[in-house]
Amino acid sequence: MSVEALVNGALLGGLYALVALGLSLVFGIMRVVNLAHGIVVLAGAYAAIVVTRVVQVDPLLTFVVVGPVVFLVAALTQRLLLQRLLGHSLEAPLVATFGLLLVGQGLFTFGFGTAPLSLDAPWGRSGVTVLGLTVQAVNVVAFALAVAVVVGTQLVLTRTRFGTALRASAADPATAGTLGIDIPLMHALTFGAAAAIAALAGIVYGTAFSADPNAGLPLLVLGFTVVVMGGVGSVPGTLVGGVLVGVVSVAVGGLLGPVYSPIAVNLLLLVLLLVRPRGIARPAWLGPLRIGKAPA
């Protein structure tokens, strides 16, 4: 295993972070595990495929259309469906989003068939050489996007009034509510933004790899892994988690063989859950999390 391979893996971790960020946001702010998250990522890829069939543009440009559409659909889903389940228990939103996963999978099979489809872009099939290391251009794009989105999200959360309101509604929804913060609106915006980021991840994923209706669950598991490794609800943590997954996969694959990569990643996930159930980098502003019980 070479330095080149490790760098490539770390850069690919940027894509993993993009996939995971939305999951982490929804979990951190709404305390909902969105089992349909992988489907949202795929929705981004499929929507971009539809757009590029109509107008031949670079897949990334389609985000101008795909992003707002996915944002709107997700925000409405949250407002009309999930919000009413939030007061209940852990399993209510979990089960509902699982239903969304099934529906999405059915819709994609119906609309696009089961064969993989992919987005084509010059940066999806070329390499770049920096400092004598040849890496895939798509990984560089993914990493740059991930850094931009992670920094942007972190700035919104920590430096804006909106972010303050969001953090308040996550830390103490009851008090935030009495202070006049419209919590359902906060949740809808969070869910929409998380979905839009997932859609962006989907566009990059579809360009780097491909999209097929059965990829929803593996993408969700990937997201989970990254979220847990980076610390649930921590925005910068997703980047750490993504890079960690990328590097561990490459290192184990190179040393022991690729067959052991998924075993190693899952094992690491389990060990991390046990020794640091709150992840590597957990922000103080989230306060103590009691995920077993949702706040009233």
């Binding site: 070479s2 391979a5 690729p258 067959v259 998924p262």
Partner: peptide, 16 residues
């Protein structure tokens, strides 16, 4: 020769 589990997405070091 390299062997992969189903669902592998990152082949780059083996391609190299």
């Amino acid at each position: 020769r390299a062997e992969f589990p189903v669902g592998t997405t990152d082949f780059s070091q083996f391609v190299q």
